[in-house]
Design a protein around this nucleic acid. Structure first.
Lengths: 336, 336
DNA sequence: CTGAAAGCGCTTACAG
DNA sequence: CTGAAAGCGCTTACAG
């Protein structure tokens, strides 16, 4: 059904060696011969079998991307950035959803390894897999770039957004508005949450207010919106919202929308009774009412930078660890 | 670095043929021998090279999925359904985003073909590629299942939700509420829009009202929310909203949210001034305020059914055309 | 500049 | 039940 290199060779009256050479352009071939081969390729619409090529080259021209949740638009945006770069270089990108679970992330990565992808991008990798050395192990075998999820003693490559600065600006914004009783909402296990929580606690300490940290499940799946809403409603029986808590810092926009929805259910006015600030600046944050104040992470750029770095690593085979940082930006809208 | 079948053979003191046989379990192997080989495999943590296997088997244990836009949660939900089934059968699923363009869809499909995937799922395929015979062509080479996007004379396999029934119920719901001046919002080129538009026009004809059809760009990308909002605002200079138009039927929830946001900007009350009904029942439809009335498509089931059918096709090599239909359900919430 | 041959890591008739 | 050999569709030294 499909033609092979042999068919082309016969058609052009040369050896398969020669055909291979014109396909790859890696050896000199007489102009006339080359043209004959090219004509044959065109005539048969021949496409070299990538399986056979990869078996020899140890290169598949494909990369894997693992995300914690495809329903968080943050990740789809980052993935678009990655795809833009990779496609222009004729790489395929395979996307896999770990659903925010460390064991699943591990399995997804191993699958990619088995499939001989040329490199892997990990977006917001699970803390557990950073700590237990798994990601470092993988990084020894194959180029790896992590987007966010920084860990000090792990030798791999990072492209980070400056979440620290973003968090500080967000917190200071809230404080400048007169808020003291700020609650903090996070998901379970990622560095992005940890770093924000630490900063939050620090600020609260400085103001002399007892921190309130709320952890919701599966922070990167869109279901978290509903969950957060429910959590907020429960919270309203423990705290006097609008008084004991006047503002929420949510670790991502999904959770922030959850808080917003909860406020609506509880008949609390945003931002008059409760101020809300999110993180990421996913499109959803502009679709709410009021629109969300949030911290832009430049998701597209995050993806592009990571892809570029991965390509460099694949080409150089230089697996050493390295870190890039991308600026964040506070976007003040109507929820604060 | 990685072990091959030869290493295992040496370790176990047998031929590679025997090792292959215990891996595949397709020929009898003496128990004792088998155990020795299994021990060797375990010891070396041997994983057969899938590239080499696929080269021979003409099977990659992977399928491709093409979606018009990953940022429409409708598709991510369907994809989850597909993945659930495929993973349980140890298939990899590759996802590719066509961005709702026919040429891009074509390219994505060709990429999959080149990669020797075992089958392809097309979600809401582009009308153009159905009409020009491309999808039928592909369906002759390899198992293909289309989710929605039905076309009469195309021989391929379909899993459809009963969009017709869903549309009727939605329209009748609006009419039963006393609406006559209903406007219709759709995206560009997919069967799902066409079928709904036809039905809409039919109903309008019966009521004796001039239909108003509005087409927005890239209906399956989340940007459509903004676009639709803008379109609505423009529309408000042509029509007296709340009077000349009292209800909107949107072909998907994304557009419905856009209308909702537009109404907010225009200070129109939903549903008092304007009623809005969406389609799909993506989670976003519950996150708005008011919550959207919409038509549930049972996206998860759509994906699962398609995956199951694709597996059957892959195993039977029976490429004949076939159609499954899945029920829809009107979900009445607060926007109507 | 060109070709015959070996080899990538497997599977599968074929023979025993 | 087991193994030697051919072959999947390519690439790449090696020789000319």
């Amino acid at each position: 059904m499909k033609y092979t290199i042999e068919d082309v060779a016969r058609e052009a009256g040369v050896s398969i060696t020669t055909v291979s050479r014109v396909i790859n352009g890696n050896y000199p071939v007489k102009k006339e011969t080359r043209e004959r081969v090219e004509a044959a390729i065109k005539k048969l619409n021949f496409q070299p079998n990538p399986l056979a090529r990869s078996l020899i080259n140890k290169r598949t021209n494909s990369i894997g991307v693992v995300v914690p949740g495809l329903t968080n638009m943050f990740f789809t945006e980052v993935v678009h950035g990655i795809e833009r770069i990779m496609r222009s270089r004729d790489y395929d990108v395979y996307i896999s959803d770990s659903r925010g679970r460390a064991d699943s992330e591990k399995r997804r990565i191993n699958k990619f390894l088995e499939r001989y992808v040329d490199g892997i991008v990990l977006i917001d990798p699970q803390t557990e897999n950073m700590k237990n050395g798994f990601i470092e192990e993988v990084s020894k075998k194959i180029p790896v770039v992590c987007i966010n999820g920084y860990h000090e003693n792990v030798r791999t490559n990072f492209v980070l957004s400056d979440e620290e600065k973003g968090t500080k600006e967000a917190l200071e914004h809230l404080i400048s508005l007169g808020h003291k009783n700020i609650a903090f909402i996070r998901g379970e296990s990622s560095y992005s949450y940890d770093i924000k929580e630490n900063l939050y606690k620090e600020y609260m300490k400085n103001i002399g207010i007892e921190p309130i940290v709320i952890t919701v499940q599966d922070g990167n799946n869109i279901d978290v919106v509903e969950n957060t809403m429910r959590v907020l409603i429960e919270l309203s029986s423990k705290y006097q919202l609008g008084k004991e808590i006047t503002a929420f810092f949510a670790c991502n926009d999904l959770m922030a929308v959850g808080v917003l929805n909860g406020c609506y259910e509880l008949n609390l006015k945003v931002p008059d009774d409760i101020a809300i600030i999110g993180f990421d600046n996913i499109i959803l944050s502009q679709m709410t009412n009021p629109k969300l104040t949030t911290v832009d992470q430049n998701m597209r750029l995050l993806g592009e930078r990571a892809a570029q770095k991965l390509l460099d690593l694949i080409e150089d085979k230089n697996l050493y660890s390295d870190t890039d940082v991308i600026e964040t930006k506070l976007i003040i809208r109507k929820s604060t």
